[in-house]
Measured scan of single mutants.
Amino acid sequence: SSEEQMCGTHRETKKIFCEVDRSLLCLLCSSSQEHRYHRHRPIEWAA
């Protein structure tokens, strides 16, 4: 659903897949302290 594609923290669309956590992130989350050094892919890659 579209609600699942929205970041609850930043209200941004989740467009990035974190390979380490195997989760979807928004651009702001992907550059956060928690995920900054993880490997990321565009969401299309994970589909």
Rank of each mutant, 00 (worst) to 15 (best):
S1M: 04
S2E: 09
E3A: 13
E3Q: 12
E3C: 13
E3F: 07
E3K: 07
E3H: 08
E3L: 09
E3Y: 03
E3D: 14
E3P: 09
E4R: 08
E4S: 08
E4G: 02
E4Y: 07
E4C: 03
E4P: 09
E4M: 13
E4T: 13
Q5P: 08
Q5R: 11
Q5K: 14
Q5S: 14
Q5T: 07
Q5V: 12
Q5M: 13
M6Y: 07
M6F: 01
M6P: 02
M6V: 09
M6L: 10
C7Y: 01
C7T: 01
C7D: 03
C7G: 05
C7K: 00
C7W: 05
G8M: 14
G8K: 12
G8E: 13
G8Y: 11
G8A: 13
T9P: 04
T9G: 04
T9Y: 09
T9C: 04
H10F: 00
H10Y: 01
H10K: 02
H10N: 01
H10G: 02
H10V: 01
H10M: 00
R11H: 14
R11Q: 08
R11G: 11
R11P: 05
R11F: 03
R11A: 10
E12A: 14
E12M: 10
E12P: 02
T13A: 14
T13N: 05
T13S: 11
K14V: 07
K14Y: 04
K14R: 13
K14D: 07
K14T: 03
K14S: 02
K14N: 06
K14M: 09
K14H: 02
K14F: 01
I16P: 04
I16V: 10
I16S: 05
I16M: 11
I16C: 06
F17K: 08
F17Q: 03
F17D: 02
C18K: 06
C18A: 00
C18E: 07
E19L: 03
E19R: 03
E19I: 04
E19Q: 06
E19V: 03
V20L: 06
V20T: 11
D21Y: 11
D21S: 12
D21E: 10
D21K: 13
R22A: 08
R22S: 10
R22L: 07
S23M: 11
S23P: 02
S23Y: 00
S23N: 01
S23A: 12
S23E: 14
S23H: 08
L24F: 11
L24Q: 10
L24W: 11
L24K: 06
L24A: 12
L25G: 03
L25W: 00
L25T: 03
L25F: 04
C26A: 01
C26V: 00
C26L: 01
C26E: 01
C26Q: 01
C26H: 00
C26N: 07
C26R: 01
L27P: 14
L27F: 12
L27D: 14
L27H: 15
L27K: 14
L27A: 14
L28E: 15
L28H: 08
L28R: 11
L28W: 06
C29R: 00
C29G: 02
C29M: 00
C29Q: 13
C29F: 00
C29K: 01
C29I: 00
C29L: 00
S30T: 09
S30M: 09
S31P: 04
S31F: 07
S32H: 05
S32L: 07
S32N: 10
S32P: 05
S32C: 06
S32G: 12
Q33K: 11
Q33C: 01
Q33Y: 14
Q33W: 07
Q33T: 10
Q33F: 09
E34G: 05
E34A: 12
E34S: 08
E34C: 04
E34R: 04
E34M: 05
E34Q: 06
H35I: 01
H35P: 02
R36D: 13
R36K: 10
R36A: 13
Y37H: 14
Y37N: 15
Y37W: 09
Y37C: 12
Y37D: 14
Y37I: 06
Y37R: 11
H38Q: 04
H38E: 07
H38G: 01
H38P: 02
R39V: 11
R39P: 08
R39H: 10
R39S: 14
R39W: 07
R39G: 08
R39N: 15
H40Q: 10
H40D: 11
H40M: 03
H40Y: 01
H40I: 00
R41G: 07
R41S: 13
R41C: 03
R41W: 06
R41A: 11
R41K: 06
P42C: 12
P42N: 11
I43G: 09
I43S: 12
I43V: 13
I43K: 15
E44A: 06
E44S: 11
E44Q: 05
W45N: 15
W45C: 14
W45F: 14
W45I: 14
W45E: 15
A46F: 09
A46S: 13
A46D: 14
A46C: 11
A47Q: 15
A47T: 14
A47H: 12
